[in-house]
């Protein structure tokens, strides 16, 4: 797959070009090809979901975009700048949230503003207002002084989202952020996530999202496009446009188009999913 064939007239927000990642086990020297020849353009302001069987290298791709891992070959470019290390313009939300257990909800949300580059040039009052704004946005005012271990899974997830947004990243990298939640909470938070992302769009600052999930219905519900990955090694097997109009609400889950798209994606990874457990 060449990048030039990507159907877009806009300049991509992110461009992954022939990205390959090989892990070498320290002791045995054994090599594992996690991601191979992965090419993808992510458009500005789009909500992109990546699905694929377990162990297909989804998280590795995300870590490389974040700058936490370096590709063995190929390049990752954001707005024309080569990605070489982590930066606050690419915010990450981890699967188990990675909240700081010794910090209250407020202090977790404000951590990047206080200790990192996102807080540069902001006065303490501005920082506080920004923290207040995002704590309120995720509906955690009442729990603002609590610590992560005192919160439910859904509330922790909201803290992680508020913390991510408070740092004002241009690209949101989300690694199965709803994976650890029960089915009901997950559905509620999917709607919530779209609301928050959509609200930002009203201000003309819609964020670019790369969202990793193993839930096909979740991907269809959330995404503008779904990247389907195959494993061993991880590569792009298809990119599917989700043509369900926005704003999306609960009722689209019962629409025929939703079912069609879900089936289509499932048919692409079904064989591998069966192989994986055989």
């Amino acid at each position: 797959m060449t990048v030039a064939t990507m159907p877009t007239s806009q300049k991509p927000k992110l461009r992954l070009q022939n990205v390959t990642k090989e892990f070498v086990a320290k002791r045995t020297g054994q090599k594992t090809l996690a991601v191979s020849d992965f090419s993808l353009d992510v458009r500005p302001g789009e909500f992109l979901c990546v699905v694929g069987p377990s162990g297909c290298g989804k998280s590795t791709v995300l870590n490389m975009i974040a700058g936490l891992d370096q590709p063995t070959e190929g390049s990752i470019v954001m707005d024309g700048q080569l990605v070489t290390r982590p930066g606050a313009e690419r915010g990450v939300m981890f699967q188990d949230y990675a909240l700081f257990p010794w910090k209250s909800v407020r202090d977790n949300v404000g951590f990047g503003l206080k200790h990192g580059t996102p807080g540069n040039g902001l006065s303490p009052v501005e920082r506080r207002e920004r923290v207040d704004h995002f704590v309120k946005m995720v509906g955690l005012e009442a729990a603002a002084t609590k610590y992560p271990h005192q919160l439910s899974g859904g509330m922790r997830q909201r803290v992680a989202l508020a913390r991510l947004l408070a740092n004002g990243p241009e690209v949101l990298l989300m690694d199965e952020p709803l994976g650890a939640l029960d089915a009901q909470t997950r559905m509620v938070l999917q709607v919530e996530l779209l609301r928050i992302w959509g609200e930002a769009a009203d201000h003309g600052e819609r964020k670019t999202v790369v969202f990793i999930t193993h839930g096909i219905d979740e991907a269809v519900f959330l995404a503008d496009r779904v990247v389907v990955m195959s494993s061993h090694p991880g590569r792009v097997s298809a990119v599917i446009d989700i043509d369900i109009p926005r704003p999306r609400t609960e009722h689209i889950r019962s629409e025929p188009r939703f079912g069609q798209l879900t089936d289509e994606i499932w048919s692409l990874i079904r064989d591998e999913a069966y192989q994986a457990i055989a």
Binding site: P86, F111, H115, G116, P118
Partner: peptide
Amino acid sequence: IDRKLLAAAETMGVSRRARLTHIAVPAAL
């Protein structure tokens, strides 16, 4: 120390020095 906490701080543009004082120290406490 949970490596993810250090990685999370890194993606917030927190310097190495601040990661040591604000993540490593409380995490080891």
